[in-house]
Every structure is written in structure tokens, then in C-alpha cells.
């Protein structure tokens, strides 16, 4: 996975602040995966590469790499849209910490 978490911006003194209210980084330092109770797990034997889960992921925490769909568990909030929308029902919900 070619994912790198974003940098955290530390603004200690006034001189660190930008002159205008501009954004200095994206939110990829914020691992929203900790919100998750249920973890989606893809069964690659049944997967038909339709890309439906990728299409409907609101994060987007599902990415396409090596001709398959992968879940980025750093960011998956566990909403379950991929589980309910998968036409082959090959994504299962498993409880975290089991």
C-alpha cells in the first residue's frame, strides 16, 4: 500500500501562522479508523472486481491497487455501505477486537 499519513501542523508562536487563513495540510493524519466497531473483510475468492464497494465508499477508504479492491483500515469508519451494496455479498462484517 502506497499510503503515507499526512503531517501534523504545529503552530506555536504567532510567526508560525500563515498570513491568510489557508490550509497547510490535509486531514490524513486523522485516523478515523478508530471510530469503527465492525470491520469489513473482503473475500477475494468470491469478488468479481465490479468496483461497487469502491464506488460507494464515502471516505474514500477503499482503493484500487494490483487489480483488486483494498480497504484502508486507517480510515474505514465501518459504516457498512460496502457490505450492504456488494452484489456478490462477498464483504463480511467482523467485530473489532475478536
Amino acid at each position: 500500500m502506497n499510503f503515507k499519513p499526512g503531517k501534523k501542523v504545529v503552530l506555536e508562536k504567532l510567526a508560525d501562522y500563515p498570513l491568510m487563513p489557508a490550509s497547510l495540510a490535509d486531514m490524513t493524519h486523522n485516523f478515523t479508523g478508530s471510530w469503527r466497531n465492525m470491520r469489513p473483510v473482503i473475500d477475494y475468492d468470491k469478488c468479481i472486481n465490479c468496483g461497487t464497494c469502491w464506488k460507494f465508499c464515502p471516505e474514500p477508504a477503499i482503493y484500487i491497487e494490483d487489480n483488486k479492491v483494498n480497504v484502508n483500515y486507517y480510515f474505514c469508519k465501518g459504516c457498512g455501505i460496502c457490505v450492504s451494496e456488494c452484489p456478490k455479498k462477498c464483504i463480511t462484517f467482523e467485530e473489532e477486537g475478536k
Binding site: G6, M27, N30, T32, F56, E59, C79
Partner: peptide, 15 residues
């Protein structure tokens, strides 16, 4: 749009 944003789970607006 980058992940890590603060939308609720299953948010239609972020989609």
C-alpha cells in the same frame, strides 16, 4: 477528496 475527514459514518454529503 482525501480520507480522514470528519463526516459521520455513512454520510451522504461526503459521498
Amino acid at each position: 477528496m482525501k480520507p480522514g475527514h470528519l463526516a459521520c459514518q455513512g454520510c451522504g454529503a461526503s459521498l
